[in-house]
């Protein structure tokens, strides 16, 4: 994977702990999370119906869709609770000099 695939999202202090920010890049929406043990990234749209997860609730390692309460594991993307049944895509994240980067395919 080439270096260009790491995209800068923002600074580490732009996300509060147990919270997320939305990040749009080339027609795609991502969510970047700050959990107690680090930063994570997933697709930004629920796999159940097209609603932005940025308005969802982050609790422990889970993001809950604000529309129908489908729940996903933020680290694995696994769909944990209906109506969500399709997993959420996850992306690698790195922090360099207090900046967050995500690697997009």
């Amino acid at each position: 994977m080439s270096e260009e695939n790491w995209i800068e999202v923002g600074s580490t202090d732009s996300i509060e702990e147990e919270d997320l920010i939305r990040f749009d890049h080339q027609d795609k929406t991502f969510c970047v999370y700050r959990l107690t043990d680090g930063f994570y990234a997933t697709d930004g749209i629920c796999t159940h119906e097209s609603v932005h997860l940025e308005d969802g609730l982050v609790m422990d390692d889970e993001i809950e869709c604000p529309m129908h309460q489908g729940i996903f594991n933020i680290k694995s993307g696994e769909a944990l609770s209906p109506p969500a049944c399709e997993d959420l895509k996850t992306y690698p994240v790195k922090v360099d000099n207090d900046k967050i980067f995500i690697k997009i395919d």
Binding site: V51, H52, E54, D55, G56, L57, E64, C65, P66, M67, Q69
Partner: peptide, 11 residues
């Protein structure tokens, strides 16, 4: 509007 009350209702 879609997405705007879910988090608060869940809390």
């Amino acid at each position: 509007t879609i997405g705007k009350v879910g988090r608060d209702i869940r809390i």
